[in-house]
Simulated scan of single mutants.
Amino acid sequence: MTLNLLQAWQSAKARLEAAGLAGPVIDARLLVEAAAGATRADIVTDPYRALTPEQEETLSDYVARRERREPVSHILGRKGFWKIMLSVTPDVLTPRPDTETLVDYALKEFPEGMAFNLLDLGVGSGAIMLAILAERRQAKGLGVDVSEEALAVARENAANLGLAGQAAFLRGDWTQGLAEASFDLVVSNPPYIASEVIAGLEPEVRDYEPRLALDGGPDGLAAYRRLAPEILRVLKPGGAFAVEIGYDQKAAVEALFREAGASGVRTLKDLATHDRVVVGAKNPLERRT
């Protein structure tokens, strides 16, 4: 029997519910849209539109992959973040809504029309940097990552978004080789999950996300110990920083940045009211010796 859009959505939702997956309604809709070449509006306004046999086969494959806990972003090869759409592969961390807290802060700190230099450490897919650059066309960004595969994804996303002229990418180990006082804004979503915790994470994260982007060492703070003094080194006097953290890392990460000499250190909460982003600045009166 040929399925229509509504039946396909209902069938996919039922399979995902039976598999015990969270968010089956949205996941099923996204998979149907992709498999059938449809939009959300199509499902509402033309629910009885029939799928072709090829589309039904594609949808069945998509749903089977999701039942095995493969993330929707990997199945479709894309993920929406802030106001942009990004290509996503297993080589990069799937962008999450929680991280939009960081983007929101950056855009408030640097108003439209302002020219500034941005550094994204551990750029991954480019989500943070490209979301900012897309709204601040006078800005320039440098994305650094140790993974050449991740950089390839970020470069593709920059090109697809028409941001290649604003964005540059560099393979490197955090700030190694970067000059002092070079950037007005430094952002980062470093690995912050304690090594021993990773085995107990949801399969979508544990089995499909790059461990390099997850593993923060024995206590989850290894990256911040390196980043705090280095971020302050490459920031211009008066420059701002914003780093994502785990929900229980506020006190430890704030302390590391204060010890490094940052001023105005505080933590922002995400929409779920979890501590999410530590922000602060380099003293505007500081001078290099």
Rank of each mutant, 00 (worst) to 15 (best):
127 A>L: 05
270 D>V: 09
114 M>L: 13
36 A>P: 07
113 G>F: 01
172 G>L: 04
225 R>T: 06
235 L>W: 03
260 A>M: 09
196 E>R: 03
22 A>W: 07
183 F>G: 01
178 L>Y: 10
182 S>K: 09
209 E>T: 10
38 A>C: 10
69 R>C: 04
256 L>D: 04
89 T>C: 07
131 A>H: 00
285 L>Q: 15
189 N>I: 11
285 L>A: 13
281 A>R: 15
121 L>P: 02
26 I>K: 10
269 K>R: 14
11 S>C: 10
164 A>W: 15
141 G>D: 03
110 F>D: 00
171 R>P: 11
141 G>E: 03
71 P>R: 05
228 A>Q: 09
66 R>N: 09
235 L>Y: 03
255 A>G: 06
247 Y>C: 15
122 G>A: 02
146 V>K: 13
49 R>M: 08
73 S>A: 14
125 S>E: 04
3 L>K: 04
136 R>P: 07
151 L>F: 01
25 V>T: 15
271 L>C: 07
181 A>L: 09
43 I>Y: 07
102 L>K: 02
207 D>C: 11
187 V>G: 08
248 D>N: 08
217 G>M: 02
221 L>D: 03
15 R>Y: 14
83 K>A: 12
258 R>T: 12
105 Y>P: 00
101 T>Q: 06
48 Y>R: 15
83 K>M: 14
239 G>I: 08
88 V>C: 04
61 D>Q: 14
88 V>I: 15
174 W>A: 12
70 E>L: 00
101 T>C: 09
270 D>N: 00
139 A>D: 08
218 P>Y: 03
22 A>T: 10
45 T>R: 12
121 L>F: 02
251 A>Y: 03
148 E>L: 15
42 D>R: 01
98 D>T: 04
57 E>S: 12
10 Q>F: 09
273 T>A: 15
24 P>E: 00
71 P>F: 03
51 L>R: 06
105 Y>Q: 01
